[in-house]
Structures are given as structure tokens and as C-alpha cells.
């Protein structure tokens, strides 16, 4: 199985305060992690253990302070800001707890947004966005604004937005954190289905029963992997 994510000794240190009295926060203290193609991984651990930080580094939103990282076999150190943006656009799909839909755009245009940065022509964008929304069961909500959608529907729009990118890697940070149990179940079923279709998924969660649906659970504690680092 080809590895999508290969990390060795990843550290992340935040420095805050003035130069005279800096406070260092070691969010990650040497993480070794490998995630294979088509795997469904749950990232768990107490609050502040560095889950989100790790996910941002996996998704190239943030850069590590140390260690080495290959995404899809490609080392990411030394890549320019524009190259990182291009890789994010083409290989990584994000799903956030707070949905992050643009309030003035319809569901269809929200989903089409990543393709704008890929230079896909407008008609083709909308066609693909429509297909993605249909695949998450929202074919009848294309022209709704986010304010006209329920929480579960919003999260499905956000998942469609990630799917439209056809990413190597789907990253979800507590995607059910803002949802009631019924909507959560819908979203988790959607992830189950995506996993069966062969998508690689990394999902941050606090809830054991959510984690239990994944193939593998990676546990973080104090910025280190306590369990499940290797496939």
C-alpha cells in the first residue's frame, strides 16, 4: 500500500510574547506518522494535545518546525507559498467543524470555489459542483444560501466542496462537532461511504464511537503519538 502521508520526527513550536520574555509552546514533539492510500484514520486525544496542529501540517496549511514530511511521496520542505497552495488545491480536501461556507454564495458556487483556483472554466466548474452536491444528497439544494441550510446540510456542502477537488487526502477536523446526533450520523455514514469508495480520510474527533468507525485510531498526547502511528 502506497503511503499518502509519511512523517518522521515532526515538531511544531509556537513562540509568543516579546523577544525578551518569549513563551515557547511545544504543540508537537516529534511525530512519526504514516497513512496509506485508502486508509480511514481517526485522530484522537485530549484537548490541546496537538490534533489540529498536526492536521494543518498534514494539509500543508502550516509548516513544521522540524522533521521530515512527504505528501504522496513528495517532500514538502522548501516549497514556495505558491507551490504549497497549488498542492493544497489539487491534493487536499478540508472539512472543518465550523463548515466555513461563504455566506453570500449559493451551495453550488461554494462547492465550485476550489475549482476557481484551478482555472477550470465556469460551466465545467458548475457541472462538477452539481455532481458533487448530488453525490452528498443535496441535488435539490443547489441554489440555497448557507443561511437557508441546516447544520448537517451545511457540512455536506463542505464535504462536497472537498470532494469536487478529487483530493488524495480528505482532512476533517471534528466535522460532527457542531451537529446533533442525527445529522452526525448522516455525516459519518457519508464518510463511511467515501472510505468504501477508496478515499483516504483523516478525521479528528473526541468521541470514541466516532473514532470506532475508522480503520485505525491514532492517539496524541502532549504532542506525541501515544498509539497507532504506523499502519
Amino acid at each position: 500500500m502506497a503511503a499518502v502521508v509519511e512523517m518522521q520526527g515532526i515538531t511544531k513550536t509556537y513562540r509568543s510574547g516579546s523577544s525578551a520574555r518569549t513563551v515557547e509552546v511545544h504543540a508537537l514533539r516529534g511525530v512519526d506518522l504514516s497513512i496509506g492510500q485508502g486508509e480511514y484514520v481517526a485522530l484522537m486525544g485530549p484537548s490541546g494535545s496537538g490534533k489540529s496542529t498536526l492536521m494543518h501540517i498534514i494539509g500543508l496549511l502550516d509548516s513544521p518546525s522540524g522533521g521530515s514530511y512527504r505528501l504522496g511521496g513528495q517532500p514538502v520542505e522548501g516549497l514556495s507559498e505558491a507551490e504549497l497552495a497549488r498542492i493544497r488545491n489539487q491534493r487536499v480536501g478540508f472539512v472543518f467543524q465550523a463548515f466555513f461556507l461563504l455566506p453570500r454564495l449559493t451551495a453550488l458556487h461554494n462547492v465550485a470555489l476550489p475549482l476557481v483556483y484551478r482555472g477550470v472554466p465556469s460551466a465545467e466548474r458548475l457541472r462538477r459542483a452539481r455532481a458533487a452536491l448530488e453525490s452528498v444528497g443535496l441535488g435539490d439544494r443547489l441554489d440555497h444560501l448557507p443561511s437557508e441550510l441546516s447544520g448537517g446540510q451545511k457540512q455536506r456542502v463542505a464535504i462536497a466542496r472537498a470532494l469536487v477537488q478529487e483530493p488524495d487526502l480528505l482532512l476533517a477536523d471534528e466535522p460532527t462537532g457542531n451537529l446533533d446526533s442525527r445529522s452526525s450520523e448522516e455525516i459519518l455514514e457519508l464518510f463511511d461511504r467515501l472510505h468504501r469508495q477508496g478515499k483516504t480520510i483523516v478525521m479528528v474527533t473526541h468521541e470514541p464511537d466516532v473514532g470506532a468507525r475508522a480503520q485505525r485510531i491514532v492517539r496524541l498526547r502532549d504532542g506525541k503519538i501515544a498509539e497507532g502511528g504506523a499502519a
Binding site: 496549511l61 497552495a85 497549488r86 493544497r88 461563504l102 476550489p114 483556483y117 466542496r161 477537488q165
Partner: peptide, 16 residues
Amino acid sequence: TREIGLRKALGATAGL
């Protein structure tokens, strides 16, 4: 700010 963050997460470069 959040819109800008999202656009960057989705692949917008600083230049764009």
C-alpha cells in the same frame, strides 16, 4: 478574515 483563510486553504495563493 475567515473567508481569506478559507480561500487560502482551498488553494488561493497570496498573490491571488
